[in-house]
Simulated scan of single mutants.
Amino acid sequence: MPYVNIKITKENVTSEQKAQLIEGVTSLLQKVLNKNPSTTFVIIDEVEIDNWGIAGEQVTIRRKKEK
């Protein structure tokens, strides 16, 4: 029973894009590991960019510096 947790920043990801991620991950597990899609769980967590850090900085701050 595979369980996959995808964490992405919360930035206008559409329902259709999320559906594609779920379908793609499920299909990949079936093809590569022969896992049953009916028992494969895919969870998508959207994280605010203030709560996501890279190299010791919030994504919010890093993006402001890039501009």
Rank of each mutant, 00 (worst) to 15 (best):
R63P: 01
N36I: 08
M1D: 09
T39M: 07
Q58N: 10
T9W: 03
T14R: 13
K10F: 06
V25Q: 02
K35L: 04
G53E: 06
W52V: 01
V59E: 00
E16P: 01
I61V: 12
L33I: 10
D50M: 05
I6P: 03
T9H: 05
K65W: 10
K67P: 00
P2I: 02
T26R: 01
S38L: 14
T14V: 07
I61M: 07
E66L: 15
Q17S: 09
I49E: 04
T60D: 04
G53S: 13
S27Y: 05
E66K: 10
N12Y: 12
I43C: 05
N5I: 14
E11H: 11
D50R: 04
G53W: 13
T9Y: 12
K31E: 11
Q58A: 13
S15C: 10
D50L: 11
S27R: 13
I22D: 03
L21W: 01
K7V: 09
Y3N: 12
K7E: 09
S27L: 12
V59P: 00
M1P: 13
D45W: 08
S15T: 15
V4N: 02
K10P: 02
L29V: 05
W52C: 00
G24D: 09
V59D: 00
S15L: 11
G56Q: 10
Q58E: 11
K67Y: 13
I22C: 07
K7M: 10
E16I: 09
M1R: 09
S27M: 12
A19Y: 05
V47S: 09
M1G: 11
W52G: 00
I61L: 03
E16H: 09
Q20K: 15
Q20R: 12
G56L: 06
I22Y: 03
K7L: 04
T40F: 02
E46W: 03
V25N: 03
V4H: 03
K35T: 04
G24L: 11
K67G: 10
V32M: 12
L21K: 00
E66T: 03
G56R: 05
E66F: 08
V42G: 00
K64H: 07
V42W: 01
I22F: 08
D50C: 08
Q20I: 08
E57S: 13
I54L: 11
V13I: 13
G53Q: 02
P37L: 08
I49Y: 01
F41Y: 10
I22A: 08
V42F: 03
